[in-house]
Write a protein that binds this DNA or RNA. Sequence first.
DNA 1: CACGTGACCCCGA
DNA 2: CTCGGGGCCACGT
Length: 137
Amino acid sequence: MVNRRANVGGVPRNRRTGEDNRDIEAAYSDSYRRIVAVIRQIPRGKVMTYGQVAEDANLGRAARLVGYALHALWRTVPWQRVLGMRGRGIAKVSIKDPIFGTEQRLRLEKEGVRFSTSGGVDLSEFGFRLPKKRVKR
DNA sequence: CACGTGACCCCGA
DNA sequence: CTCGGGGCCACGT
């Protein structure tokens, strides 16, 4: 399993305890909490891209922030269901660490997500979006 | 306060 | 396909 700490420069551990990440949400910003809230709603067998998570969390185009946050909060969410956008409705594993990257793909395949020969996931088939809030009208 | 950095993304050349 | 360039934003230094 993935026990290995994936600490990359700058990404802190839980600010309060310095270890356990289970309640890490409370220690972080509101943006992080919203990101977590969105990711937790992705059902089994479906995926979202970093950019889509940012949008649905009302964070505009802060896709980068989602990646940053997820790296720190992965213990608290189904992290495997977030992929990187690779143009034209195709998403791919975006994790640099090969151990985690492989783990992500295996977990998704176990949920029924299919990867093409080139490693892409068809978002028209496996993509998930939160139902739109009907705010305007 | 100012940078640098990062599991990102879009666009144009 | 590869490169830049600009945008996003939290966090560490």
